[in-house]
Every structure is written in C-alpha cells, then in structure tokens.
Design a protein around this nucleic acid. Structure first.
Length: 457
RNA sequence: GCGGGAUUCGUAUAAUGGCUAAUAUGCUAGCCUUCCAAGCUUGAGAUGUCGGUUCGAUUCCGUCAUCCCGCACCA
C-alpha cells in the first residue's frame, strides 16, 4: 500500500467526482459531505454487498428500513436523552473545556446517577478546581442529538430528535417482525440508514461527520448463549473487512473496550480499527446490549415485547448482539487501501487499486484514434454491448490513449478496452489491465466474459 | 469548544496597496496521432463571507465560514 495523506485523497476525490464538501457554494458546512457520481457508485457497491452478505444470503436475518423521525419516547426509553449528552465545564483562566463528570471523578466523587444540577452544586460547594488548579465556571450540557420540531411550531408541536442510531427503529419493530414471521431464536434484523450526531468537532475528512450512514443488525439470542454468538458474529465482522472489502489483515485490528469507555447500553464491546492515513481508528464494532433496549421499551410502552419459545410456554426477553459498520468509514478505508503510486517511463502514475467488485466503473471503452469514423463506429457498437451487460461502463475519446488510461487509473477502473484497425478486420480488441498495465488481444465476447467473471465476488 | 496555521480558476501552485491576477494540469472546440499524460490552435474558468482603514484592498485590520495541526470530546 502506498502511503497517502487525507489531503491527497480528498483532493483526488473532489477532482474526480467521488466526494464533495457539503453546501460548498455557500462556503461549506462542517461535518457534511456529498457523494458525487463515482462516490455514490462505490458506496452502493458496498451497501449492496453488505445487504447481500448479511440479509439476502442468510435465512436468519430480516431486512428493515425504519423512519428517521420517531416518537421522543423512543429516546427516553433508550436513555439517549439523559445519557447521550456530555456535561462540559470550562476552566475560567485557560478557557479549556473538560468533562464535568470526569473532573468530579478525579476528586473521588462518584457521579453515576448524579443529575447535572447536582454535579454543579458539588463544584461550588466543595471548591473543585480544574486539573491546572484554576476556578471552574460556565458549565453546560451538550446533547449530541439534533433536535427538531414536528407540526406547527406555535401550538401543539412535538419536539423530537433526528435518530443518532438506527438500532432503536429495529427494537420498536421487534414485535412486528415476530408477529409477521415468528422466526426461531436466534435471528437478526438488519438496517442501513442515515444517522445524525451533533459532533463537537467533525474531523479527518469523512471519518467523523455529523450526518453518517450506518449498516448494522441486531441479533436476538437467548441470554445464556450470548457469548457464543458474540464470538461468531465477531468472526463474521472480521470476514467482511478482510474477504469482502479486501482490506489487508495488517491494517485491521480488534480492540476490546473497557467498562469506562463503553456506551451506556453495552456490557461488552469490541471495536474494529483500521489503519487510516491518520492512524488506527474505529471502523466499526460489535456490542452486547443484553436486554437493555427491549426491556426499557416494554416498560415505557406497556406493550409486551416478550418472545415465547416455540413448543413451550416459556417467555423471554431476548438478548441482543449488535455488529455495526460505519459506511462512510468503510468507504474511506477502501479508498485509503486502494490509493497507489508507481512509475511508468519516469512519470508518476496514480491509481486506485480497488477490488473489481467495488470499483465504480468496471470498464472503459476507447477508440484508438478519434478521426477515423469506422473505428469510432465500431467502438460505439462495442460500448453499447458492454453497457447492456455491465452496469457502469465509460466512454472516452479525448486526448490520446495514454491520457485516457491514466484517467481511468485514477478512478480505479480495472479494465480498459481499445478498438483499433484490427478490430474492424477480425473483431478483436485490446484489453488493458489497471494494476499491471499489461495488454492482451482477444475477441470481444471473450473480454466480456472475462470482465463479467472478474467483477463477481 | 480552546490554541496555532491556512483559504487565489476543477486541481496543484505563483504574484501584487493601482495596467487585462500568472503558470502547469484538467476542461471546451478543432487539427494531428496505429496503444501508456506527444504536438499545434481555440475558448471558458479564481482572490471564501461580511465589514473597516484607504482616493483605491485579493493584498493591511476585524468578523464569520470552512479546512489542516495540537488539546479536549467521540454516548
């Protein structure tokens, strides 16, 4: 893998139409990114593969697409309203900000169930100082959920939030899926969708943004079996990164998250980290959520969310294991992994070594030269054949053949196909391979078969 | 959110308190070209925002926005 900076990568992605800054003509908006024609193609190749792998090819996982807006009571039950916010306090001298609860903990004060107001009282009563020994002030709550309003603003409007995770839509539909299909335990429910988090500081290109897409499933099991399935799903997750996204094993590592760092719902979490240009960072994770969510929703909704084990009268609240895949982080990993440079005729060549099944454009078709109508005509015919058979095919007759190869290299197109004088005579073309730049002359049908076979996984 | 740096055609860079803001590449249109960024011609394209200083600001000052680095944060 060629080492690449985020700057180089984002520059290429902008120039070639993968990813643009959100709201760019208005000066941009922090933490939002727009996917261009090639970016969205790459992204879809990833989501399609994920859906295929975890839903379509399995008998035990059901698909779902729940709404982004949900009753505020959902967030009450999930305890996101109270927990998904950070109490922040400022050092009055240095203006540095600290987590209020962390500072209290450092002073041997347990903050487990302490309200925000109570924490502030502690600060004033016990004369708590900042780590640098200065007076503290200006405390505030920072909730990471985006608030929004439903209905007319003046009267009777309902205040709720854009979802910060897809999982709650899965839990609120648990009963529906059980009623429609009555699947045997264990079974899963999968979703792919947008989530919104009001991050304090979005950073590192598309790595941490305020609008993010997540692919995840909740896997419902009988409580005593949880660790067995946790390990199984962890292996599946790893298989996704290595064998489906084709990330190199050296660039993926696991990290078990200790109690203090874990999310409020989790009893065990293992993060998967990828070696991004800025270092090893979380790409996804797997959490054991136990019965936390279903139990809370049952309590608050007064609906039974129990599952009756078939052939018995035994009722249980299933426990949940949740593998999560950050889609934008998957995209960034695939792009970082693919970026490569080499040299041809003493000239630097930049190419994206994307796996064939993920590459946005599968093949580009060129006429060798532009000013011979017979060649153009034949090339257009070939282009039409490929266009019909393969999803994303590109036509290019600009500049000269070398420039066109370079252009396709930069967007990671695995194959280029050139029509020349010989093509007119014997129906052969030249197939050029991206990574090796090697060329091979063959029949059109032969190249079509070769390419079709190579983009399957 | 704090501290520091930055922002000029799509991209990468240059220059300037006052003349038409330059170069490369990409893009456009055409010529030429029998396989890895050849050449010629043509055209379009930029000083992030708002304000201040000034006769005059892309340049100096401030504001906001965005990006990068460090800190903090990342349920």
């Amino acid at each position: 893998m060629t080492k690449v900076t985020l700057e180089t990568l984002s520059s290429l992605c902008k120039r070639r139409g993968f990813i643009y800054q959100g709201s760019e003509i208005y000066g941009g908006m922090a933490g939002t990114w727009d996917y261009g024609p090639l970016g969205v193609a790459l992204k879809r190749n990833i989501t399609n593969l994920w859906w295929q792998t975890f839903v379509e090819k399995r008998d035990d996982i059901y698909g779902l697409d729940s709404s982004i807006l949900m009753s505020p009571r959902v967030w009450e039950a999930s305890s996101h309203i109270t927990t998904f916010s950070d109490p922040i306090i400022e050092d009055l001298k240095t203006n540095k900000q600290y987590r209020l609860d962390h500072i209290l903990e450092e002073n041997q004060i347990k903050t487990n169930d302490m309200s925000f107001e109570k924490m502030m009282k502690q600060v004033s009563q016990k004369k708590i100082l900042s780590p640098e020994g200065n007076t503290l002030g200006n405390a505030k709550r920072f909730n990471l959920m985006f608030q929004t309003q439903i209905g007319p603003v003046s009267k009777g409007s309902l205040k709720t939030y854009l979802r910060p995770e897809t999982a709650q839509g899965t839990f609120t539909n648990f009963k529906n899926i059980v009623d429609s299909f009555y699947p045997d335990l264990p079974f899963g429910i999968a979703q792919i969708g947008k989530n919104f988090r009001n991050e304090i500081s979005p950073r590192d290109y598309i790595f941490r943004s305020r609008e993010l897409e997540i692919m995840e499933f909740e896997y419902f099991v009988i409580s005593k079996d949880w660790d067995k399935y946790f390990d199984k799903l962890k292996d599946l997750t790893k298989d996704w990164y290595i064998n489906k996204l084709k990330l190199s094993a050296n660039n993926i590592r696991e990290r078990e998250i200790n109690k203090d760092e874990r999310a409020h719902y989790s009893q065990k979490t293992v993060d998967f980290e990828y070696k991004y240009p800025m270092g090893f960072k979380e790409i996804g994770g797997i959490s054991y959520r136990a019965d936390f969510d279903l139990l809370n929703h049952q309590r608050l909704s007064s609906k039974s969310l129990e599952y009756t084990i078939k052939g018995t009268t035994t009722k249980v609240i299933p426990h949940v294991i949740e593998p999560t895949f950050g889609l934008d982080r998957n995209v960034l990993a695939v792009l970082s992994e693919a970026y490569s440079e080499d040299e041809i005729n003493n000239e630097k060549r930049v190419f994206l070594k994307l796996p064939n099944h993920l590459a946005p454009v599968k093949v580009a078709v060129f006429p060798l030269i532009k000013n011979k109508p017979e060649i153009i005509k034949k090339a257009k015919e070939v282009y039409a054949v490929f266009k019909k058979e393969i999803m994303f095919v590109m036509w290019d007759d600009s500049g000269n053949i070398g420039k066109r190869y370079r252009k396709q290299d930069e967007i990671g197109t695995p194959y280029c196909l050139t029509i020349d004088y010989d093509s007119l005579k014997d129906g052969t073309i030249t197939l050029r391979q991206r990574d090796t730049t090697s060329q091979k002359r063959m029949k059109i049908e032969e190249s079509l078969k070769l390419i079709k076979d190579s983009i399957r996984i």
